[in-house]
Design a binder for these strands. Structure first.
Lengths: 131, 131
DNA sequence: CCGTATCCGGGCGGATACTG
DNA sequence: CAGTATCCGCCCGGATACGG
């Protein structure tokens, strides 16, 4: 069973991985895990995302077949976003990764502190460059 | 069982996820999955990464406790990089994600083609802006 | 409410040159 | 071989204003 990241599609897979790692994409997928959400509701829940980025993120996810966009022709307009089967299938490994991240945050923090105290934290004091 | 991405550490988890999604970090972790590698060997295998970025990526991974850096005081110097237990534990969900990406590349491609033909591909022809 | 367009600053990351 | 330092273009992404 050879590796999935063999030279040929290594770049392509990496590309998908980047999308997964994309800050907003992941949060959107997480948020849409259970329910369909409207634009601003999604925006409120995520918090800290600009309108522009949410739009762009959703468009990309839609284009990649991860989310469905449903427009209700009411006034004012209502737009609902939900995961597609493909999106839901992605949700699972992402969830696993999220679980890992959540569990290992303390480990990472400790590793960083250890590293920073070993190598000088003072190294970051080069920001105090001028007298 | 509430969500792992509740407001409190939502940002932190997302931060870790971003690192995972980072193009080079993921490739490094994948490459180091089975064996320890030297700097330039790693660089050659990844392909397309600049010396600067490989250094930065390795430093960050080291600081986060994902990889071990071992210097053999020979001449010329030899430096070997290997996954730590923490790094190896990350490797698993990443591998799962890689598997997903590999399996679903065709689906994503088809979704994109469908999307692009539905909405005008010509939209991207706005690059031909001037007469 | 939902989305697009425009402006613009900051940082990511490649290229290059230089050390031990 | 392994790494640091510097320069610099480019694109990401926030802010803002406007349209349906």
């Amino acid at each position: 069973m050879p590796n999935y990241y063999e030279p040929c599609q290594c770049g392509r897979v990496s590309e998908v991985l980047q999308r997964v790692g994309d800050k907003w994409s992941v949060l959107v997928i997480m948020m849409l895990g259970d329910e369909a959400l409207r634009f601003n509701e999604l925006r409120r829940r995520i918090g800290g995302i600009s309108q522009r980025m949410l739009t762009l993120t959703l468009r990309t996810l839609e284009r990649d077949g991860m989310v469905n966009r449903t427009v209700h022709p009411t006034v004012p307009p209502q737009v609902e976003y939900a995961l597609t089967p493909l999106g839901r299938s992605l949700w699972e490994p992402v969830e696993a990764l999220g679980k890992w991240a959540h569990q290992n945050l303390p480990n990472i923090d400790r590793a960083r502190q250890a590293y920073d105290s070993a190598n000088g934290v003072a190294a970051s004091a080069h920001e105090a460059e001028e007298a």
